[in-house]
Amino acid sequence: MIEIKNVHKKYGSLVVLDDINLTIKEGAVTALIGPNGAGKSTLLGVISKLLEADQGTVLLDGEPISKVKPHNFAKAIAILKQTNQINVNLTVRELVSFGRWPHSKGNLTTFDEQKINEAIQFLRLKEVEHKNINQLSGGQKQRAYIAMIVAQDTKYVLLDEPLNNLDMRYSVDMMLILQDLVKKLNKTVMIVLHDINFAATFSDHIIAMKDGKIIKEGTPDQIMEKDVLDYVFDHEFCIAGVNGKKYFIYYQESVDDKL
């Protein structure tokens, strides 16, 4: 279990996380939504130990993460940042094998190779496993990075805007893969998303943030409410129901409305 207790984070005088209290929902896809500067990426950074909170504590199975040894932490929590490009010549398989580092320290065992093979199969990359990652399409390359995370075989997977620069087809494909991580591999996924409708469609739980605070968390049905989204994004939303789910429709003020 990951628990965030009274976490604060500032950059100079700018408060980016303001008294965050949260327990990550187990066995689910949790989407973090909110405007730019809401603190979403910073929260992932603090949970993953890439950033240190100024105050407060993050607990992993009841133990402060500051006390968890790095190799044990890397076996429990994996993060894929927005900027994950590696400027060296690597094949897909070589990239995915990096996910086994916390377990093998570079000396791959038969079990490590099995995990690498499983990750490549799971992300449907078998046909390109010996290709250079720089020869891949954007969608294939992102799947290769996710495969590296899958090979790491952690319980918790943190993803910071993994749909960036992906077209609609690959974005949907990626979200279906993340759902399968939960359903088939028993992972817990926390993901920063900018597209609210993607969060409504593919997540089990949504956390809405603004100005470094958690405004509301709950099921997609609970978060996809006009008053919640209007406040979080400072924008007037129109919410529509489709096939039992709620989605937002872009609102545009007509000329008649302005008169």
Rank of each mutant, 00 (worst) to 15 (best):
N134Q: 15
R143E: 00
D180I: 00
Q152G: 06
N72W: 12
G27K: 14
I120C: 01
L181D: 12
Y145D: 11
F111E: 15
E3G: 00
K155H: 10
Y251V: 14
H71A: 12
T91V: 04
L51H: 10
K5D: 06
V15G: 05
N134C: 13
T91K: 05
N89P: 08
W101K: 11
F198C: 06
N132F: 05
R169H: 12
I214F: 14
N21Y: 10
Q82Y: 01
K81L: 14
I77V: 15
V242S: 04
T109D: 11
T154E: 02
V150Q: 02
I177W: 10
K210G: 08
V16H: 05
D19F: 01
I206T: 08
G212T: 10
E217W: 02
A31R: 04
G39H: 14
E225I: 00
N87M: 03
D61M: 07
A208N: 11
T57H: 03
K115H: 07
D112L: 09
S48V: 13
K226L: 03
L51S: 12
L193V: 07
I133S: 04
G62C: 12
A144I: 01
F73N: 05
V150H: 01
K183V: 08
N243H: 14
L90G: 09
G212A: 12
Q55N: 15
P70K: 12
N186K: 15
S104W: 01
N243G: 09
C238I: 14
A38S: 15
I77P: 08
L44G: 02
F233G: 14
L60R: 04
K210E: 15
L108K: 01
H130A: 11
M174Q: 02
L90F: 09
A144V: 06
A53C: 04
G27L: 06
A28Y: 08
D167P: 09
Q152R: 06
I191Y: 10
D18C: 03
D167Q: 13
G34N: 09
G212R: 09
L125R: 02
